[in-house]
Amino acid sequence: MLADRSIVVVAPDQGLRRSLAFALEVEGYSAESYDSLWKAEGSSRASLCTIVDDEILKSEAGAAQSLQRLGGRVILLVDGMSPLQEHDGTIILTKPISGADLLGVVNSLAAMAK
């Protein structure tokens, strides 16, 4: 699958990873899922974007630094209660997210990549 249709999903919750990956695949994107940022680092460099659940920032030591090292665009899913430090290229979506909102952002990134 082309990089402009490949998306990396990073979330500690397996159900959330599966749900996001399924929604993206239904729309024609290829999704790779990981339960930690360090596992996703290599794949994220060759993808359209990386979707990261902010729970990973709470559960993984050094996650904030790993988040900054990810290549490409990052969509960060936040609960609205967590303090976060944005970095360039981060797109913030507040949970609960709708599939339409997430796909709107992903489709916009795909259109810009062409």
Rank of each mutant, 00 (worst) to 15 (best):
H87A: 15
I7A: 04
V106C: 04
D54E: 15
L57I: 06
I51C: 05
I75D: 01
M1S: 13
S82A: 12
A63I: 08
G104E: 14
A31Y: 01
M112G: 05
A11N: 11
R73S: 10
G71W: 00
P96A: 14
Q14Y: 07
A21K: 01
L84K: 03
D53Y: 03
W38D: 13
I91D: 04
E55F: 04
P83N: 13
L67V: 05
L57R: 02
R45H: 11
P12S: 15
S59R: 10
D54Y: 04
S98A: 14
S6I: 02
V10F: 02
L70M: 09
G42A: 15
T94K: 14
P12M: 08
I91A: 10
S108V: 05
D35T: 12
A21I: 06
G80R: 06
S33F: 01
T90D: 14
S43W: 03
T90W: 04
K95R: 12
E60H: 08
E25G: 06
L77N: 03
E25K: 11
A111W: 07
I7Y: 00
L102C: 09
E27D: 15
G104R: 12
G89K: 10
I51P: 00
G28M: 08
S98Q: 11
S108E: 15
S30W: 08
P12H: 14
M1E: 06
R18E: 15
K39C: 10
E86K: 13
Y29K: 05
S108D: 13
R17A: 09
H87W: 07
L93K: 08
I51E: 00
L57T: 03
S6T: 13
A23R: 07
L109A: 10
Y29D: 04
V10D: 02
D35N: 14
A63T: 05
Q14K: 11
D101F: 07
E86M: 13
P12W: 03
I7P: 00
G89F: 09
K95A: 12
I97W: 04
L2S: 14
A113N: 09
G99N: 08
E27F: 01
L37C: 10
V74Q: 01
A110D: 04
E55K: 09
M81S: 12
I51A: 01
L77A: 08
D53E: 12
V106S: 01
K114E: 12
P83D: 14
A113P: 00
L103K: 07
I92F: 06
S47F: 00
L20E: 06
E32T: 12
L37G: 03
R45V: 13
G104V: 13
I92L: 15
M1V: 12
I91Y: 09
L103W: 05
S19P: 01
L16A: 11
G28I: 10
L103D: 04
L70V: 12
I7F: 03
L93H: 05
G42V: 12
L103Q: 06
L102V: 09
